[in-house]
Amino acid sequence: MTLYFTKEHEWLRVDGDSAVVGITRHAADELGELVFVEVHQTGTVASAGDAVAVVESVKAASDIYAPVDGEILEGNAALSDDPARVSSDPEGEGWILKLRISNPEQLSALMDADAYAAFIG
């Protein structure tokens, strides 16, 4: 399993051709406690950069983007009742969705943990 990060403050844990996607602790702290999470329909085929989910805090809505090309396999069902899980454990139980990666070469353009730490300064 390899962990990647994006400039949109998402993480991506890759296992074979599938990946779990969530937002980073930095992003979760910036957004504040979430009140609503909605993942686009399972089976949706997205290109890197397409919105695949929306997360809402009291204050604002933010899109979650596909870090790489892929198909949505599932959303984290536990978040519909407890969206605040993203805020309390963004890089664990607060994962947002699973993707089937269709273009693994795109992963090389993403950051590793050290590069992301440097990116957020």
Binding site: G32, E33, V35, S57, V58, K59, A84, S87
Partner: peptide, 12 residues
């Protein structure tokens, strides 16, 4: 200040 450490929900 938009919020402090506790966040908007807790402050509300």
């Amino acid at each position: 200040p938009l919020q402090y450490a506790d966040g908007i929900m807790a402050e509300h």
